[in-house]
Design a protein around this nucleic acid. Sequence first.
DNA 1: CCGGATCCGTAACGATACTG
DNA 2: CAGTATCGTTACGGATCCGG
Lengths: 228, 228
Amino acid sequence: MTRRSYNQYCGLSRSLDLVGERWTLLIVRELMSGPKRYSDLVDTLDGIGTNLLASRVKQLDNDGLITRKQLPPPAASQVYELTPAGRELAAALVPLAVWGLRHRFDEPRRGDENYRAEWTLVFLAALIDPAATTGVRAVFQFWIDDSPAALSIDNGRVVVTPGEADDTDVVVTTDLRTLADLATRDLDPDLTKAAECLMIDGDATVAQLLLELLTERDGRSHARAVCC
Amino acid sequence: MTRRSYNQYCGLSRSLDLVGERWTLLIVRELMSGPKRYSDLVDTLDGIGTNLLASRVKQLDNDGLITRKQLPPPAASQVYELTPAGRELAAALVPLAVWGLRHRFDEPRRGDENYRAEWTLVFLAALIDPAATTGVRAVFQFWIDDSPAALSIDNGRVVVTPGEADDTDVVVTTDLRTLADLATRDLDPDLTKAAECLMIDGDATVAQLLLELLTERDGRSHARAVCC
DNA sequence: CCGGATCCGTAACGATACTG
DNA sequence: CAGTATCGTTACGGATCCGG
């Protein structure tokens, strides 16, 4: 039983031979917000068959994109995490995710559609220029469409974690539609529309920095900040 | 008969709902080297079922990523081409293709594995900074693993076409492995190894420019040029 | 020949039940 | 908790056929 292949000597098709099957790239996305247990993946990847998940993580492990790791006692459980090659793959997914944020959000969130804030944050965080965060140390707690996730910046290291973090400097409450517009489009400079759906609470100068990091790319600013 | 969906309010999963099925992204890749007829796609996407191809182009058309266009008489045939949204999607695929070039070329080309030079060139061309080509007008004929394709640069416009072009300024003969290493890795500065498998013929200064365009990104040069 | 549509066998996927 | 096992359904692959 051999693996299905496009049989083309091409970077894209060889990538897709490896990770083009259903669910595979979403598993990689899940691991972008830190190591996860098998049952975490089952919970968050709603609809995946457990047999399929087991098969996928085995493939990803064999292909060197993720590793199993035993947590030290007393946890006694194992987690999956990205290898360096897996992290490079994750970085390569960012433009595809941003393309989706730009082109596939005309239709709003369906009622039954799942959502987790870290799904958005991992890709927006990848857009942040690490060099612009030297000397910065801050924790931003996001609530996006009522889902919590945190963005931690520590002197060039940018990390996203699901749920609520401790010692948060700033709390951002918004909806995904607004956040996607803010980060992926040239928003109207005064952010009037966005301001209605974007609440920022906490230290004003730190909040200002966040808005600059999210909107300022390629050396130019996409939006001027409004803060409360 | 509804379309299968991950049912997640996320940029990546919504992208994959649209273009994550088998063959879809390879059709997009094909159209990156110019409009193609149905039978062109059948020929080049070896192994795709004609029913599946028909279904895919219909989807891509409905989703606004490609359009059908009637060629003017006496051609009397129709071609498919990318829309602006489709071109943005294509641009988003570049990192994934480059990831494949970096991580999936340890195993060499299999004997039965298909290859076309434009598959490589469209992604390498996308890495070229258009701003670096202002005032430049040149046509580079590539022969990669014995397959021909041309890269045309015209004052900021970079275009790839399959096959042999007219009025070529420079002819580059190489194998994909060498070219991939050259463009995606920090190659040893004197290119000694690459020079064995890379022959450049034509105007020396224009050839020099090509090597700079292919290896110089993010403002730094990955390789010094060797030209014959 | 081009641009598909139809049919059918096989492989992949999805849901649930079960196990160490 | 971390998976297997089973089984019905869907998607894909290959071939053939059909209208312009």
